[in-house]
């Protein structure tokens, strides 16, 4: 029965991908309408920058970007282009949107990916430790610290870290992704980037970690009261084995759910941190595009982040299917 469940996987995935494609289309439409509902447009932004804003120039600009056409027509043109993987051109950077996004993507993935992995592993480990003796010293300290970081705004943590470790102690770089004045290669460059990544990654990780600590602890305590845990003890299993084999595996199910949701936000969720640390990723790109009313670029980033969310949802469900034998369908 278990085997047939996993055999059915390709067909299930096929269905899900089809549903996801339709979802992406709906997202494209909503994103488009949303962005056009906001006041201002690229023409006004450019005109504002260039300083010569006579009506004729604005009209020309709008004609050039196709902004003079009725909204449904603009939407149709946009969808047609997206379907052929043409995300348009950023008017500010004068380069294809797809190229710009792909250029910035690795920096963001490096930042958010490592923050995510650190947050998840440290969160689970600390959550398990805290649940070992509820009300004990370790529990009180872990829960207090995690509450503090959970309640503190992300950018504030970032700024404090910059002040302490960058400005006062001068231990760590606080700006950008690598040393620009001296070109480095090979291992030296890898270490340089890692060195630069420490503060932004820690800033992002402490926030997410706080959530995992609390969830893991609550889930561990709940599962500890289930009868099968008593069965395991009655077998003569050690406390170590009871915790890691019986309780934790079951307690991880809700953590996986939350991790799946957060993994989907890896690309979109780092705007603040990237801005504070001038990290050259998607987040800061989105921020700049928003200020400049760079419609095509902004829509491209939206689309990209939506697809990532959907992909991670699918991955989470697949993980559940493998992890929990009771789950029968996606």
């Amino acid at each position: 029965m278990t085997e047939s469940r996993l055999h059915a996987m390709p067909r299930l995935i096929g269905w899900r991908v089809l549903k996801m494609a339709l979802m992406v289309l709906a997202i494209v439409v909503v994103n488009f309408l949303l962005i056009h509902a906001a006041p201002g447009d690229p023409a006004s932004a450019i005109a504002g920058q260039s300083g010569q804003a006579d009506a004729e120039f604005m009209r020309q600009l709008r004609e050039q970007f196709g902004l003079d056409k009725p909204l449904p027509v603009q939407l149709w043109i946009y969808i047609e282009r997206v379907l052929t993987f043409d995300l348009g051109v950023s008017h500010r950077l004068q380069r294809p949107v797809l190229t710009v996004i792909l250029e910035r993507l690795p920096a963001t993935l490096l930042l958010t990916g490592s923050a995510f992995l650190i947050a998840l592993s440290s969160g689970i480990a600390l959550g398990v430790r805290a649940a070992r003796k509820p009300g004990g010293i370790a529990d009180t300290v872990i829960m207090g610290v995690s509450l503090f970081f959970y309640a503190t705004p992300l950018f504030l943590v970032g700024i404090v870290l910059v002040l302490v470790f960058g400005v006062w102690l001068n231990w760590l770089p606080t700006f950008g992704m690598e040393t620009v004045d001296v070109p480095l290669h090979g291992l030296a460059r890898v270490l340089d980037v890692a060195w630069h990544a420490v503060l932004p990654v820690v800033t992002l990780a402490v926030f997410y970690s706080a959530v995992y600590v609390r969830l893991t602890r609550a889930s561990m305590l709940e599962v500890s009261s289930y009868p099968f845990v008593k069965t395991a003890r009655a077998k003569g299993a050690t406390e170590h084995r009871v915790t890691w084999v019986h309780v934790l595996r079951n307690a991880l199910l809700p953590v996986i759910t939350l991790a799946g949701i957060q993994a989907g936000h890896l690309i979109g969720g780092s705007v603040l941190v990237e801005t504070v640390f001038a990290w050259p990723g998607i987040g800061s790109l989105a921020f700049e595009a928003l200020i400049a009313r760079d419609y095509d670029l902004l829509l491209g980033i939206f689309l990209c982040t939506s697809v990532v969310v959907l992909v991670f949802n699918l991955l989470t469900d697949l993980l559940y299917l493998v992890f929990d034998p009771r789950v029968q369908a996606l």
């Binding site: 289930y226 009868p227 099968f228 008593k230 069965t231 395991a232 019986h246 595996r249 079951n250 992890f323 929990d324 034998p325 009771r326």
Partner: peptide
């Protein structure tokens, strides 16, 4: 509780 006495995973 036989329904809950075994580890479901």
């Amino acid at each position: 509780e036989p329904m809950a006495a075994l580890n479901p995973l």
